[in-house]
């Protein structure tokens, strides 16, 4: 039953999408330009291997979902893309992670520069305890952007579909906003530094269904400009929003592996792997 629901969601979405977004999915991977790519990426935390040999290509201006059961390394993988894992003691990486052709774990690459071009939105909304305005202006301030700060703030808030709701309370503390508004503020904050990729680590898991739908609509709009990578434990969400889906599983030794990657429609309707089918039909995970 689960399977049929997901297939319905996928079918409905791909039929009702505007023609310019109708992608010819089979040759899609070749045609679309890859913006982020991992090649044989393995990750360790101390002696524990968290990811093994992950190879995947994230296309620009598309939404790529990473799904899989809890503990399979989805968050670890997405946090590799902007080197957030560098902050964790004992973190070690092997393999390559190419961003526009350059290995971001290579010699002489400053993680600060990486993060300025690859934005991130977290599981729980984490606005700074400052005003709405200062939250959005933060990235511009630390990155020394030139230009009128108020224009940058307004543009980012408009793109995050939050401007109309907060334009009269820019000086109020961001913590006074609702959870969904806080999360869109965090998206606006990430957009303000004009990144090329936006990573979203379960961005809706702390939100109610209405706020979740708003964020999903927003993601579809943002995908016209940015590459989006989203981690989600919610398969319906992946089916609703993602152009491509990667399915991860935990191996025997608890290291995360990627077992399937492809256009969302194909992953959900005609998976290549038996384990993917078992997972999306709810037989485990």
């Amino acid at each position: 039953m689960m399977h049929e629901q997901l297939a319905d969601i996928v079918a409905e979405r791909f039929v009702t999408r505007p023609p310019e977004l109708q992608i010819d999915l089979t040759p899609g991977l070749q045609r679309e330009e890859t913006i982020l790519e991992t090649r044989g990426l393995s990750v360790w935390y101390g002696g524990f291997q968290a990811l093994r040999d992950i190879s995947l290509a994230v296309p620009g201006r598309r939404i790529t979902a990473i799904i899989g059961p809890s503990g399979c390394g989805k968050s670890t993988l997405i946090r590799c893309f902007n080197r957030m894992n560098d902050l964790i003691p004992g973190f070690r990486v092997e393999g390559e992670l190419l961003f526009e052709g350059r290995n971001i774990y290579g010699r002489g690459i400053d993680p600060v520069d990486v993060r300025r071009r690859i934005g991130m939105v977290f599981q729980k909304p984490n606005p700074f305890p400052k005003s709405v305005y200062e939250n959005v202006a933060f990235g511009a301030r630390v990155n020394g952007y030139v230009g009128k700060l108020s224009e940058i703030v307004e543009r980012a808030l408009r793109r995050a579909a939050l401007w109309d709701e907060v334009k009269d309370k820019l000086r109020q503390n961001a913590l006074a906003l609702s959870g969904g508004q806080q999360q869109r503020l965090c998206i606006a904050r990430a957009l303000a530094i004009e990144p090329e990729v936006i990573l979203m680590d379960e961005p809706c898991s702390a939100l109610d269904p209405v706020a979740t739908l708003k964020i999903e609509d927003l993601m579809r709009e943002l995908a016209e400009r940015y590459a989006i990578v989203i981690v989600t434990h919610n398969m319906q969400q992946a089916a609703r929003v993602a152009d491509y889906s990667a399915v991860m599983m935990m191996a025997e030794d608890r290291a995360g592996e990627m077992i399937e990657f492809g256009p969302t429609r194909q992953v959900f309707t005609t998976p290549k792997e038996k384990r993917t089918e078992d997972y999306i039909t709810g037989r485990f995970g």
Binding site: M84, N126, G139, A190
Partner: peptide, 17 residues
């Protein structure tokens, strides 16, 4: 909270910032 620090790092802030 750690999440605030991560939020700032993710925007390209340096340790000092």
């Amino acid at each position: 909270p750690r999440s605030l620090r991560e939020g700032a790092y993710a925007l390209g802030a340096t340790k000092l910032e």
